[in-house]
């Protein structure tokens, strides 16, 4: 398949499916809590509604208030294009693409945080300060995880790194990456996606002043980011190198589904941590990735 055809196809599928994930999480939470909960497709309705609405923009905000979410969305989408889907290599694979992916996610963070700071509200300042500070440790964890994959496979390209069977440290790597997933997507032990007006949150507070299409873009971007991290986790841990394409895709889909349910269960069963223990949890995730790296290293040397 030519890349000109493949990239749009992938984009349609991935971007179309991404809003399902928050829906599934909410359904799981409702189910555990004994409620009926919102429909799985709720985010689609929200996005469609927001996209049609007008925008109220703070008198203080600059055009960056609207450009920021757009930049973040494009960056996340570009990052997910770099991700291979099992044996189907990424349409745009090259040596070092994994670093581009990580830094595109950082660019997305730059866009959202800059836009959030535009209004000068102390709430946004608080959220942004937390987001960028905790990202420091999360970044260390991601680099350690990527290094461990790289040591396992001797490669710096996502397509080669994610294909083979995992090494000895797969369990550690999975646990570390899952924790990073929760932190990066502002899920429960780190942040509470349900509270909108409290001082205890990171991500939600950054979107507080946004409305209309920019808010839709932010929400969709967050869903795509969740999908990206789930895909990364599933492909890093499961051996997909040997199986045929349809089977691999099915396995990936099932894996993402399991991860999503896992996120939902974590959210139902855990309370949000106190802020001072967030660095501790993230450091734990970093150490898990680091020890996975060391095990991969020892496994390679032996």
């Amino acid at each position: 398949m030519t890349p000109y055809l493949e990239v749009p196809l992938r984009l349609v599928v991935l971007l179309g499916l991404a809003p399902l994930l928050p829906g599934i999480i909410n359904k799981v939470k409702a189910w555990v809590g004994g409620r009926r909960g919102p429909p799985v497709l709720q985010l689609y309705y929200d996005l469609a509604r927001l996209w049609r609405k007008g925008v109220v923009m703070s008198t203080l905000a600059s055009p960056g208030f609207i450009a920021g979410p757009a930049v973040a969305w494009v960056a996340v989408v570009a990052a997910i294009v770099l991700l291979p889907l099992g044996p189907a290599e990424a349409p745009f694979a090259f040596r070092g693409d994994v670093l581009l992916m990580i830094y595109l996610l950082a660019l997305a963070r730059f866009g959202t945080t800059w836009a959030a700071m535009e209004t000068g509200s102390a709430f946004e300042g608080m959220g942004v300060a937390r987001e960028v500070s905790y990202a420091v440790i999360a970044e260390a964890a991601i680099i350690a995880a990527v290094l461990s994959l790289s040591v396992q496979t001797g490669s710096v390209s996502l397509s080669a790194m994610l294909a083979p069977a995992p090494g000895a440290g797969a369990v550690l790597l999975a646990a570390g990456l899952f924790t990073v997933l929760l932190a990066e997507n502002c899920r429960v032990p780190f942040d509470d996606p349900n509270t909108h007006l409290e001082l205890t949150m990171i991500h939600e507070v950054m979107a507080l002043d946004h409305s209309g299409p920019p808010l839709a873009v932010i929400l969709h971007g967050a869903a795509v980011k969740l999908l990206l991290f789930s895909l990364l986790l599933v492909e890093a841990v499961l051996p997909l190198g040997g199986v045929s394409a349809p089977v691999a895709l099915a396995i990936i889909a099932a894996g993402v589904f399991v991860v999503t349910i896992g996120v939902g269960l974590v959210e139902s069963l855990l309370a949000r941590f106190a802020f001072r223990s967030v660095p501790l949890l993230l450091t734990t995730a970093f150490l898990m990735c680091l020890f996975a790296l060391l095990m991969a290293w020892k496994g390679g040397a032996a």
Partner: peptide, 17 residues
């Protein structure tokens, strides 16, 4: 603090290996 002692412990573990 917990994070420094955790990092110390991890560093110590790596050094021990």
């Amino acid at each position: 603090g917990f994070v420094p002692s955790l990092l110390l412990g991890a560093g110590g573990t790596i050094a021990a290996v």
